[in-house]
Structures are given as C-alpha cells and as structure tokens.
Design a protein around this nucleic acid. Structure first.
Lengths: 145, 145
DNA sequence: TTATACTCCGGTTCTCCACTGGGGTTTGTT
DNA sequence: AACAAACCCCAGTGGAGAACCGGAGTATAA
C-alpha cells in the first residue's frame, strides 16, 4: 500500500507542468528532472506513458518539451494512476476468475476498499495540489518569521 | 493496487478457522491447505506470522493445529492486513521523510486515500465474510434448481 | 543545415514475492 | 519411555517487475 516511486515522480512532474500551464510554453525534461530531483532518462519514459494516455502533449524539436493536454483542474489523480498502472495489468486479458466461493467474497470486499481509495483520488486534481502546495509554502515562510 | 497472493491465502485460511471456531478443535495446516488449494509449506509461514501478530493460536503436538485467538467478529480484515504487511515496511526505521513541499503534498493525499481504503477493511470481520459466503452459496444452489 | 529535444529499443541491476527444503522442537498418544 | 504427529526456524531458489542507463534514431524550430 505504499506510494510507488513511479507514481510520485509522475505527479511531481505534472505539478511542474501545471504551474507552467498558463504561460503556454513547453517545459523540457531536463528542467523538470533538475527541479524535482528525478533521473531524467527515467522521467522520459514516464512522460511518454503519460503522453500515450492523453495526459500530456509533447512538442518536438528546438524549444520543444511537454505541456498538459488539458487544463489542470480537468486532470484528476485517478486519471494519472490509471494511465500509469492501469494498462499493464489488464493487457493480457487475465480476468483472474475466482475459483472458489470464498475467494469471490474476499475479492468483493477488496474491490469495495479499492473503490473507496479511488474515489478519494478522483476528488483531487492537479489544480488542487498546486493550491495546497502554495498554502503549505506560505506556512513554511511563517515558521521562519 | 492488486490483492496480494499472501493476503488472499491468509484470509481464506482464516475463513476456514472461523467456521470451525465454535467446535473448539484445532485445524491442521494440511487440512486447510487441501481445502483451499494453498501450498502447505507457504501457508505454514503465513500462519506463523498471524500467530506472532496475535490473530491465531497454535497447539503443538499430535492432534494439534491452529485456532483463532479471539472470536471471529472481533477480527477485522484490517487487523489481518496490518499483521501481514504492516511490520516489514516499518522495521528498518525508514521514515521516508518528504524532502520537498511537493512530495509532502502528494503523500498527504495518498495517505487520505489509503485511510479511506482502510476504513472499509475495518468494517468487515471474519464473521461478516462467513455470512456473505453462506449467502452466496445459497445463491449458487438456487441456480441449479 | 544544424542543433535541440523527443522517441524507440534494449539491457542491467536490484529487490521482492511465492515457494521449497532441511533440519529441528514440542507434545499428545500408546 | 518411545513414537509420531504437528508445529517451528532458517536458508535458498526462480521468476517478475521496478528503477535506471545508453545508444541510435527522428522530427522540427531556428
């Protein structure tokens, strides 16, 4: 139940893109990686996944980089998770049919619990996170006064 | 976010123990393993963990086996999960302090989502699962009529 | 044309999970 | 007391996936 490194990297990068969204200019991988301390070659792969998932758009060539594919308040955290982790598990069409009545019951409860977690993740958008970050940075400044 | 094999095995075994709880006689690993199609040497380790966590009690020697440490309605699914997966992650005292404000915000949301999942798992006890199983078996019988 | 920046592909290292095996030790039964 | 059933501890293996790294392209603004 730990937050995976991959997901955290992706969200940190998306936060950078969200703050730059209104400017309209693309952010480059190098900049994001340096800002958030992420290995750049790895971040490259994550952004490629996000692009295929329709979360971000890429601009090739000089002065290129990445931009959010839509407004920050239209991207929920659940969108991001699904894009990153949802595909691989459902590709091989392994429905994992429960064989016994017992395991069916267990999996039902599990699904309900996962649904509860997802509904929380659906509440939050990149915009929300940006606001929370701003509020928290204000707090940090006040501590130093 | 998949249910781990370990957790499912443990819950299936505990369901067996819960149905036998009123009888008072211990159930042996071999019996549980055969009933629920679990590798017995692996189940042995899981039951040892559950014993150290105070979920089950063991009776050594001939006619020995395992019994629930308390009544089935006093054991929640969250108890079981914590016992199985909670310890290992917190042993090495790696508090994983978020370095940046951004990652702190992300982890806060993550924690809220996990809390939502946990509160669902806390609602359900082994007793509940037994009842659901019984209800579902009735359904299965009706399909055959 | 050229430098920039993304894109595709493959490999490597590392950790964890599911599982197996070989010894023990405890304890009820005979 | 001897025995066997059953738990108990420790150690190792194979496969899968995660986190990276690197090279060789390819598109595109300047």
């Amino acid at each position: 139940m730990e937050i995976s490194c991959k997901t955290e990297y992706a969200l940190l990068a998306l936060l950078e893109l969200a703050t730059n969204y209104e400017i309209g200019e693309p952010l480059q991988i190098r900049q994001i990686a340096a800002q958030q301390q992420i290995p750049d070659r790895y971040l490259e792969q994550l952004l490629a996944t996000l692009r295929r998932g329709g979360i971000v758009k890429s601009q090739r060539g000089a002065k290129g980089g990445y931009i959010l594919a839509r407004e920050p308040w239209k991207i929920t955290l659940l969108d991001v998770i699904f894009c990153l982790e949802g595909l691989e598990t459902t590709t091989s069409e392994d429905e994992a049919q429960p064989k016994t009545v017992e395991s069916a019951v267990v999996q039902e409860v599990w699904q309900e619990s996962r649904q509860a977690a997802n509904s929380v993740l659906q509440k939050y958008t990149l915009q929300n996170l940006c606001e929370q970050r701003a509020a928290r940075k204000q707090l940090n400044i006040m501590y130093y006064i």
